[in-house]
Design a protein around this nucleic acid. Structure first.
Ligand SMILES: [Mn+2]
Ligand SMILES: [Mn+2]
Ligand SMILES: [Mn+2]
Ligand SMILES: [Mn+2]
Lengths: 219, 219
DNA sequence: TTAATTATTTAGATTTGTCTAAATAATATT
DNA sequence: AATATTATTTAGACAAATCTAAATAATTAA
């Protein structure tokens, strides 16, 4: 099955929006891909014909087994290139997504596997997301919660769910990265903002929106 | 000026066929790009409108100053990725062209320059071709001739002009690579084949076609 | 349960890059 | 110089991916 770049981007976005087994709606996919619902309907028909998704008029989209396999390969390439850019070329985590969005479309298993090997077969990418192996198997992520719902006091940052440059740049500015340890000092009921403290730094208050996108686990 | 992948491939092929200042013909470009002359005419009109080439009906194609600049950037990316694949991922020289053909279209100056730095700012690629720097400047290639026209006896391989997998695989099999030293043992007038001797190896005879594509210089 | 709203699909158009077949221009041959 | 051959361009078509505007289905609210 030879996929175009556009088809690959659709498959990957469907995978992302599925999160388990939820049906993906036309509008959600259009928003995610920054395109129009009419375009999504067109592509849905095509991917359905290619048996990469299950799609019926008005009933939403899910990946077929084959589509899921394809998605995992694309995600693998995306995340490996992100590792390369950070580990080898010293990019920072807010610059890499865009570049990986293009590099992921170079479809060579040999290249992908060599790259993985060269990087030491990493299992998480610079944003804390797991990297599928050559067979599409992914390490189950260790239990983690978003910072706004954490109940333990002492936490470590394990991932960031929103990968927009804006959020990542904000976290950079505040010294928050993967592995950063922090303590919750206070919850403010008024706007659900949270005061946290990083080692060696003065406490700072972050908005609910930020807290929702930082994943953490205890100690 | 934002170029599509197709436009970049055209620009690069025109650059390749120009070799100095020769006018590139419609048919030659069609052959090089494995497409049809009619398609070349269409694209020529477009690139001319974008001022990347000079083109007049029936008068052939040359790159404009801007087109040449664009070409050098693409060539730079192509050859840097080839270096990466060989030096870091242990690919051999006959496997890399195809992959670089895709990687070259990731248009990020920052990525390109970081990659160059990471590789130690190489000035020749795995096929012996010079790599333009960030400003498009290329080391002038040291004087070299094709093996079939060399008159010195003791020679060193400096480049390979035909980058087809077939030729490169042949050279691999015979132990000929960049930097290989060889001696010309005999010219056979009948078919212009050449007998050569590599250190520690029995002499071998290569066809005129092969000899034409191996570039060498004395000692 | 009808009416209003929202979501989705269809119809028809557009852009990009390609093609085939036919027409025309340039070049080579007699 | 006329003719044959080759090179190039044009005309018209097509596939992929997108869009806008209109139609229709599904959902929600009254
Ligand atoms: Mn992408
Ligand atoms: Mn990532
Ligand atoms: Mn290319
Ligand atoms: Mn090369």
């Amino acid at each position: 099955m030879n996929l175009s770049i556009a088809e690959e981007n659709y498959i990957k976005s469907i995978y992302k929006l599925q999160e388990g087994d939820e049906v993906v709606t036309t509008n959600a996919l259009a928003y995610e891909l920054d395109t129009k619902p009419a375009s999504v309907t067109d592509m849905a028909k095509k991917l359905n014909a290619k048996k990469l998704i299950d799609y019926e008029k008005y009933k939403g989209i899910t990946l077929s087994a084959e589509g899921k396999k394809a998605a995992l390969q694309i995600v693998r390439r995306h995340r490996l290139w992100e590792c390369f850019l950070v580990d080898k070329l010293a990019f920072s985590w807010e610059e890499i997504h865009e570049l990986a969005e293009e590099l992921e479309h170079v479809r060579s298993e040999k290249l992908t596997n060599r790259l993985s090997e060269y990087l030491g077969n990493p299992v998480i990418d610079p944003h804390g997301d797991p990297i599928p192996d050559a067979h599409g198997k992914m390490a189950k992520p260790r239990p983690q919660t978003s910072l706004d719902q954490a109940n333990a006091k002492r936490l470590v940052v394990t991932a960031v769910t929103d990968q927009s440059t804006a959020l990542l740049a904000f976290l950079n500015a505040k010294g928050i990265k993967l592995g950063t340890q922090l303590e919750i000092v206070a919850h403010y009921e008024y706007d659900n903002s949270i005061e946290i403290k990083l080692k060696q730094l003065p406490a700072l208050t972050i908005s609910e929106q930020v807290a929702k996108n930082i994943m953490v686990r205890p100690v």
